[in-house]
Design a protein around this nucleic acid. Structure first.
Lengths: 186, 186
DNA sequence: AAAGACATGTAAAACGTTACATGATTGC
DNA sequence: GCAATCATGTAACGTTTTACATGTCTTT
């Protein structure tokens, strides 16, 4: 089946639901899946062009760029669907995590508990605000589970995020406590 | 302070504890922190050369490469320590996550629950076996917490992994149940 | 004798981000 | 009129992985 760049799969997955422009795709990524996957214009537009050449997607006929600014809506082709499905059917997946926070924690001995606590608190704040957004999505999706079968997939993805983030926050509290115990006069 | 490639920080962090060769560093990464950070020889050796030129590290005097295969042990310099500490003192951290598993779940609607369950089960297996290793480290570290202040940093890092992974496994069970309910005859 | 771990390093390719370049439309 | 958003795209840069290249030492 050849190589499958991951950004290609993200785009094919989104186009499998609806026709979108590059700009639309960026928004879908930012709003829907950014907590576990990111994408920039600099990767989206080249991917769109490459996949069009490869026949995985085509420009949808309905362009409203008459006398207006250019906007190219893309549709997934049959070939694109096959490509997407072949990737989905392979259960192997690489999950690539790079936690700079954990790196700073792991090497925190060089600067001591106070500094490390600050790093943890920064992490805590970032996660807290993202968690609120995720919970909001989760609530809406749980209401509409019966409307469409697809919603269950989205709901479980968001739920993964919510539960992971809640676990992070529990860990933050515990970690801070352990550092404070160490710092406290014995 | 210039740019700070992350692999440089990993290496400096490790060298702050002990002198190591490139090969040693690879092993330390693989054994100790691979669950949240990875590194290949192709990035380690060039980083080592660049940091030596920049005066952040130096080849340790004690090389046993007389009539033996070459092995270069590196030491961190004062300048390297300052560089490491400056990075540690900045509480901002970027955590870059790419879960291909979640991507396959999110777009699972295109192939249905059976296929998606397989992806989840694969994830479950991968996580289970990594969790066992992490728990083993955690147990050893918890025993030696009083021996060295550094052990608390390592212990909390591993604990982060253990708790996150346990959360993943709880989520896997729940997700499979929800898919099976959907698939079951109503 | 062979396999596997030890040991360093380079080259090519892949991938992605950031910044730049350009311009129209919409809402205040 | 101005700011924000819509909209596409390229170029430079940086990072990292993968594969290649080479050879030794240790254990079975």
């Amino acid at each position: 089946m050849g190589k499958s760049r991951k950004i290609d799969m993200v785009i094919l997955g989104l186009l499998e639901h609806e026709d979108l422009s590059g700009y639309d795709i960026k928004k879908r990524i930012d709003n829907g899946i950014s907590f576990f996957w990111k994408g920039s214009f600099g990767s989206i537009y080249p991917s769109l062009n490459a996949m069009e050449k490869a026949g995985l997607i085509i420009k949808a006929g309905d362009q409203e760029n008459v006398n207006k600014r250019a906007k190219y809506l893309y549709s997934i082709t049959e070939r694109g669907k096959k490509h997407l499905i072949a990737w989905l059917e392979d259960s192997k997946a690489t999950n690539d995590l790079k936690y700079e926070t954990l790196l700073k924690l792991f090497f925190g001995g060089a600067v001591g508990p106070e500094t490390t606590i600050k790093t943890i608190e920064q992490f805590e704040q970032d996660i807290s605000s993202e968690l609120q957004i995720l919970k909001h999505y989760q609530k809406n999706l749980s209401k509409s589970l019966k409307q469409s079968d697809d919603h269950l997939y989205f709901y479980l993805t968001v739920t993964f995020g919510v539960e992971t983030y809640e676990g992070y926050l529990r860990w933050c509290k515990k970690a801070k406590q352990m550092f404070r115990k160490e710092t406290a006069p014995h």
